[in-house]
Amino acid sequence: MSPPALRLGHLYPGEMNIYADRGNIAVLERRLAWRGLALEVTPLGVGDPVEPGAHDLYYLGGGQDRDQAVVAEDLARTKADGLRAAVAGGAAALCVCGGFQLAGHGYTGADGSRMPGVGILDLDTVAGPTRLIGDLAIEAELDGERRLVAGFENHAGRTRLGPGCRPLGRVLDGHGNNGEDGGEGGVAGRVIGTYLHGPLLPRNPWLADTLIRWALAHRLGEPPELAPLDDSLEDAARAVAAARAAARGRRPAPRGRAPRA
């Protein structure tokens, strides 16, 4: 009997896909296939409800401001309750860039307009006067393990975490959530939000496998052991991205913290 497929709910694949976000889903599909497992992807667009228990992993990518506004309204109207119930029941989620902002309590634009968030991460975002752009490297921590994670950031939002959310990682080179406090991304339970894209998962297979493990734990009832894969190409790509981030120069250390050695 073949093992059950990992079920992924792809939120707004038409509207929130400006940073090669489908590449992240392709990585999940391929890493599962290499292990003899399958990925079942269900698009969840405008008007489609989220049914708690129907999916093991949710993905919400980045979008342009006008698309993000449409998505924010639909999230609040048709998906917020179901998505909150799903993650409370152990489903995993990856929310990138604009999706990261909408995973929080909301986003306030430069003109003062407010987009509601879905509230699966305790954070809030306000548009800043400039965009934070460039290669970004962080020291991420998940399940007690620390790894280098690298990608690209391009956002005007300044995101602040509340007490119910911790950073995905510590900024090594780049800006991070707001360019001030030294944190990047947000994690609560099995929900990960981040400004890292480009896309994110091809260069960071450890992060991809963490999401796969969490999602399979939701599907099967316990965390599975994943067969190791040859990630030499992915590791080389991540090293290039991290080197580019370092070449940009280190950001000033946030107040109250010593600069990195």
Rank of each mutant, 00 (worst) to 15 (best):
P3K: 12
R7S: 07
L8C: 14
H10F: 06
L11R: 09
Y12H: 12
E15H: 05
I18K: 00
I18Y: 01
Y19K: 01
R22P: 01
R22T: 15
G23R: 10
N24E: 10
A26S: 10
A26D: 08
L28S: 05
L28R: 12
R30A: 03
R31V: 09
A33Q: 13
A33G: 04
L39I: 15
L39K: 09
V41G: 15
V41P: 06
T42Q: 08
P43N: 10
G45L: 03
G47P: 06
D48T: 14
P49L: 05
V50Y: 06
P52M: 12
A54T: 09
A54H: 10
L60C: 13
G62S: 09
Q64L: 14
D67S: 10
Q68C: 07
A69N: 05
E73W: 03
A76C: 15
A80T: 12
R84N: 09
A86E: 09
V87I: 13
A88N: 06
G89P: 12
G89Q: 15
A91I: 08
A91M: 11
A91E: 09
A92N: 05
A92H: 12
A93W: 00
L94S: 08
C95R: 11
V96G: 02
F100P: 08
G104P: 07
G106P: 11
T108R: 08
A110G: 06
D111P: 02
S113R: 08
P116A: 11
G117E: 02
I120A: 04
D124N: 02
T125R: 03
A127M: 12
T130G: 01
L136F: 07
A137T: 13
A137S: 15
A140V: 12
G144F: 05
R146N: 07
L148W: 04
F152S: 00
F152K: 01
H155Y: 08
A156P: 01
A156Y: 04
R158C: 00
G162L: 04
G162A: 02
R166N: 13
R166S: 06
L168G: 04
G169F: 11
R170V: 11
D173V: 00
D173K: 01
D173Q: 05
G176D: 00
G176Y: 00
G179C: 02
E180H: 04
E180W: 01
D181S: 02
G183I: 14
E184C: 10
G186C: 10
V187M: 10
G189S: 03
V191M: 01
G193R: 09
G193H: 06
T194E: 02
L196Y: 05
L196V: 14
L196N: 06
P199H: 07
L200G: 11
L201I: 11
P202Q: 11
L207E: 13
A208V: 14
L211R: 09
L211D: 03
W214A: 09
L216F: 11
E222I: 00
E222P: 00
P223T: 10
E225F: 00
E225A: 14
A227V: 07
P228G: 11
L229P: 03
L229W: 01
S232Y: 05
D235M: 15
A241Q: 14
A242H: 14
R244M: 10
A245V: 01
A247L: 10
R248E: 02
A253L: 08
A253P: 05
P254K: 01
R255K: 07
A258K: 09
A258N: 12
P259N: 03
A261R: 13
